[in-house]
Nucleic acid binder design. Structure first.
Lengths: 211, 211, 211, 211
DNA sequence: AATGAATGAGGATTCATTCAT
DNA sequence: GATGAATGAATCCTCATTCAT
C-alpha cells in the first residue's frame, strides 16, 4: 500500500508505454511502406493492439506520422547538442570525433528510418522538413562550421574553403545511407570506416599548402 | 495517294504520342505523391485525358509506375555508355568531364524524379532497384574505377586507395540532390560547381605524396 | 457489267450478312457468359469485326440480346408451325414424330443456347419470356394437346388425363437438356432415344385399361 | 458474473448472425440478377448493412457466391441423406415418399434459387457444379436406383428398364421448376400433385406385363 | 460502312475513422 | 481505456457507348 504511492501499477505503466510502442511500430511500418502505403491495421498488429487504440493516442494518421518523426528525431538532436561543447585537440581529432557521433546516430535503425521518411514523404509534410532542418541540420552544420573555422584559424585548413566545401565533408553520410538502403544487398558500405577515410583525404586535400 | 504512305493521320499521331504524355504526367505525380499516394485520376488530369485512357496503354498502376522508371532511365543510361569511350588527358580532366556529364544528367528534372522514386519506393519494387543498379550504377562505377585505376597507374593518385574511397568521389551528387530536394528552399547548392570543387580537393588529398 | 445488275458485289453481300454474323457471335458469348457477363468487345472479336460496328446494326446491348433471341427462335417456331398440319396415323406414331421434331430442334446448339438464355436471364427480360411463351410454348403445347385429345377420342389414351399429365410428356426434353448442360461431362443422356423410350412408357401407363 | 459466461452480448450475437444475413440477402439478389449482374451494394442494402461489411465476412464476390451455394445446399443434402434409410413397403409407396421429400425440398425458395443459380452460372463455377453433382445429384440418383432395383426384384417394375428411364422419373421436378420460374405467371404447375400423378403413370407403364 | 481511340459512369474493393460495448 | 465491428468515402479498374477519322 505504501508502495502504491511511489510505484505505478502495471496498468499505468502499460498506459504510459503505449504511445511509444505505437510510435515504434508505426515508424517501422511507415518506413517499409511509406505514408500512403501504410495501413493502420498493420501498425496496430505490430504494436500488439487493436486499430481503435491508436486513436486514443493520436488524432489521425497524419498526426501519428508527425509524432513518429518528432519523437525519434529528438534523441539524436539531444545527443548532437550535448556533445557540442568540448573543443579540444586538433581539427583532425575533432572531425573524427564528429564522424563517430554521426556514425553512432545512423547506426540506429530508427534514425535511418526517419531520415528516409523525410526524404520520401517530405513533399507531403513540409513542416516536418522545416522542423528537421532547424532542429537537426542547422545545429549539426553550425557545429561543423565551428570546427572548420577553428581549423582555418589554427592553420590546419586552407582559408579559401567555401561553405559548400564544408558541407561536403558530410556528403558520404547521406551517400552511404542511400547506397546501403538501395544496394546493400549487392554491396554494403561501412559508414564509419569510410567516413574516417574520407575525412583524412579531405583534410589532406584541404591543407593550406594546396594552393 | 503517295503522301498517304508517308503521312500519319492526326489520330495516329495522337495515339503514338499518348504513352509518352501519360508517362510524363505519371512521373510528375508519382514524384510528388509517391506510388501509393498517387491517384490515377490526377495523372489523367495532368495528361489532359480521361481515367480510362491510361488503361488503354498500361495494364495497371504498377505497370505504369515501372514504365515510368524504365522509360526515363533509358536516356541517362545511353548517355553514360556513349561517353564511356574517350580516354585522353589527365586524370583531373577526365574526372571533371565526368562531373559535367553527371551534372547534365541530374539537371534533367525527370531524371531527378526517377532517382527519388527509386529511393522512396525501392522497397516495393526491388526489381526496379536491381535494374537501376545493373544498368545505371554499375556502368557508372565501372567507368569511374577505370579513370581512377588509370590515375593510379599514371601516378596521379596514391595506390592505397580503396574501392569505397573511389565511390565517395561521387557522394556529393547524391548529397546535393537530397539536400536540394529537402532544403532547396532554405539554401540551394549548385551541383556542378560544388562537384568540381570537391574533385579538386579530393585529388589533392589523393596525391601519392600524401602518405 | 451485265452481271452487276444481278449480282451483289462482295461488299453488299458482306453488309447484308453482318447482322447475322454478329447475332451468331453474340449468341455464343451470351450463352457462355450470360448477359451481364458478356463484353461486347468479345462479341466483336468472335464476329471478326470491331466493337463500334455492332452499334451500326443494334442500338445497344439490350437490343442485341433481344435480337439474338428473336432471330434464333424464329426458325424452330416456323418448323413447329409448318409441321403442325399432318394428322395421320396412330397416337403413338404422332407422338414419336413430335419427339423427332423436338429432338431435331434441340440438336441445334443455337436453339439450346436460346433456351438457356431465357432460363438464365428471363427475370431481366420478361418480355422475351412472354414472347417465347406465346410464340413457342403455346403453339407446341397446343399441338401436343391436339394429339392427346385425338388419342383420347380414339381410345388410345385414358380420359382421366389432366393438362399437366400431358405437359409432362415433354418434361424429359427440359430435364435432359439441363442435365447435359450441367453434367454432360460426367454422364451424357441421349435426348431422342430417351424421349422415345419415355413416350412408350407413358403411353403404356396412359392406356385406358389402367384404371 | 455467472451469467456472463453463458450470455453473449448483443454485439457478439449480431456478429455471429451477420454471415447468414449476408448470405441470405446475397442469394436473393444473385438469383434475381445473376452473378455478374449483382451489385454488392444491393446485397448490402438487402442485408441492412453497408457495402464494406460484406468484406468483413467474405473475401470477394466470387467467394460470397460460392458460400451462398454451399451454405444453402447443405440443408437439402442432409435431408436427402438422412431419409435414405427406411426401405419398407411397396415400390409405389417408396416412390411417393421420395416425391414428397423432393417436393418439400423444392418448396424452399432458397433451394430453388440455388438450383437456378447453378443452371445459370454453372459455366463460371464448374467446381460448384461438380460439388452439386457429387453431393446432391449422385446420392439422390443412387437412392432412386435402389428403389427401382428393388422394384425390379420384387416384380413391380419390368426388368428391361434402363438407367435413363429411371432418371426420367424425376424429370418433372426439373421441368416444373423451370416452367414455374418462367411461366408461373401464365400458368402455375403444382409440383407435388403432378409428380405423384406422374409416378402413377410411370409405374403403370413400367409394369412387367407391358412387354 | 467500319474502325478503334476515347470517354466516364458504374461497380469491386480498401481502409481511415467512428462508436457501441 | 480498449476493442473490433461497422461505416462509407475514396480509389482502382471495367466496359458500354460515342465519335472523329
Amino acid at each position: 500500500m505504501i508502495e502504491r504511492e511511489n510505484k505505478k501499477n502495471s496498468r499505468t505503466v502499460q498506459k504510459e508505454a503505449r504511445p511509444k510502442e505505437i510510435l515504434s511500430a508505426a515508424l517501422n511500418v511507415f518506413e517499409s511502406n511509406g505514408f500512403a502505403g501504410t495501413r493502420l491495421e498493420e501498425v496496430a498488429k505490430f504494436a500488439g493492439i487493436s486499430k481503435g487504440t491508436i486513436y486514443l493516442y493520436f488524432d489521425n494518421k497524419d498526426e501519428l506520422f508527425k509524432a513518429c518523426v518528432r519523437e525519434t528525431v529528438g534523441k539524436p538532436i539531444a545527443k548532437t547538442l550535448e556533445s557540442a561543447i568540448n573543443f579540444e585537440g586538433s581539427t583532425e581529432k575533432l572531425l573524427h570525433e564528429l564522424a563517430e557521433k554521426i556514425g553512432d546516430t545512423f547506426s540506429d535503425p530508427e534514425y535511418r528510418s526517419i531520415f528516409f521518411l523525410i526524404v520520401s514523404e517530405g513533399k507531403r509534410f513540409p513542416k516536418l522538413v522545416k522542423f528537421y532542418f532547424d532542429e537537426v541540420i542547422t545545429p549539426s552544420v553550425s557545429r561543423l562550421s565551428n570546427i572548420i573555422q577553428r581549423g582555418v584559424d589554427r592553420g590546419d585548413i586552407k582559408s579559401s574553403i567555401s561553405e559548400e566545401d564544408a558541407l561536403l565533408l558530410l556528403s558520404p553520410v547521406i551517400f552511404i545511407n542511400v547506397w546501403n538502403r538501395l544496394f546493400g544487398n549487392e554491396k554494403k558500405i561501412n559508414l564509419k570506416d569510410t567516413l574516417h577515410s574520407h575525412i583524412d583525404i579531405w583534410l589532406d586535400g584541404m591543407r593550406p599548402e594546396n594552393k
